[in-house]
């Protein structure tokens, strides 16, 4: 890793600090086959902040999220139009390399999905993917890996719990621990953006609180875009909120504003729980 990591396109990133928006979509339209799931979405996500994406089931939150790391494209029948800029670079350009994009944009899923490997191997999984084989073998690297594991687990506040069982199979951990491990797994490849699709919906309230605490901790170092169905959670954790309805971006403002004085009737209805 150099001090100034590359953007997906290849230019150095953190030097152009004028990029205030980590994510910026313009006239984003997306189709699953004949079905249009996103309509002209213009969406800006501020660097280093937590943005909550809310809206009723089926409105396109996951679709929007999954187009930001282009994981949607695995389905052969998805078509995207418009632009999605990540750190100032349009990721739909032809010269964008998927591995580089996904290094920059990490993703946390609804159901914790650690690999059926040890905790250590999970944390190192992404790091090893992007590391040449030759360096992976050396003994220097073993020490370096130990440091990476410790640092990532400290960052997600799990080092004390995990340090004596790094070789335990992650499938046997509690859901909360698994989800935190899934976040820790992203950190060694130094992403700038973390996309989270209802990361707490499989967790009980206590575990949810613990993950939220973790989000606060990561705030600032990472740009976090989190989908949630839980209005209280959106209010608690996010700086800004964006409300979607039927594939359209309806309203996007500071969370404290949106939840007190929503501009649109639909937004008000939704946050008051009238549908969704």
């Amino acid at each position: 890793m150099t001090d100034s990591p590359m953007t997906p396109g290849g230019e150095t990133r953190r030097s152009n600090s004028d990029v205030e928006m980590a994510i910026r979509t313009r006239e984003l339209n997306l189709w699953y086959g004949d079905f249009q799931a996103l309509y002209d979405v213009d969406f800006d996500v501020r660097r280093g902040q937590i943005t909550a994406l809310i809206g009723p089931s089926g409105c396109g939150k996951s679709t929007l999220l999954r187009s930001i790391n282009r994981i949607n494209e695995r389905l052969g029948y998805v078509r995207t139009e418009g632009t999605i800029e990540v750190l100032g670079k349009n990721i739909l350009d032809e010269n964008v390399s998927m591995p580089q994009l996904r290094k920059e944009v990490g993703m946390v899923f609804q159901r914790p999905n650690p690999f059926p490997l040890s905790i250590r191997d999970n944390v190192l999984f992404g790091y090893r993917l992007h590391e040449a084989k030759a360096t992976r073998r050396s003994s220097v690297n073993r020490r370096q890996e130990d440091e990476i594991v410790e640092q990532a687990l400290r960052e997600v506040l799990m080092w004390d719990e995990f340090k004596d069982k790094l070789d335990a199979n992650s499938i046997e951990l509690s859901l909360e621990a698994q989800q935190k491990l899934c976040i820790a797994r992203l950190l060694p490849i130094k992403p700038a953006v973390l996309l989270m699709d209802e990361p707490c919906s499989a967790l009980d309230p206590e575990a949810t609180a613990a993950v939220e605490e973790l989000l606060f901790r990561l705030r600032g170092d990472y740009t976090i875009l989190i989908v949630t169905h839980n209005m209280a959670q959106a209010r608690r954790v996010s700086d800004e909120s964006a409300f979607m309805l039927m594939g359209k971006m309806v309203e996007h403002s500071r969370t404290d504003e949106m939840f007190v004085t929503p501009k649109f009737k639909e937004t008000a209805n939704y946050i008051e729980g009238r549908y969704g």
Binding site: I71, P99, K103, N113, P114, F115, F125, L129
Partner: peptide, 12 residues
């Protein structure tokens, strides 16, 4: 889910 997790870490 394992495949998606792996892809999303940048694996080919």
């Amino acid at each position: 889910a394992f495949r998606e997790a792996c892809w999303s870490l940048g694996a080919t």
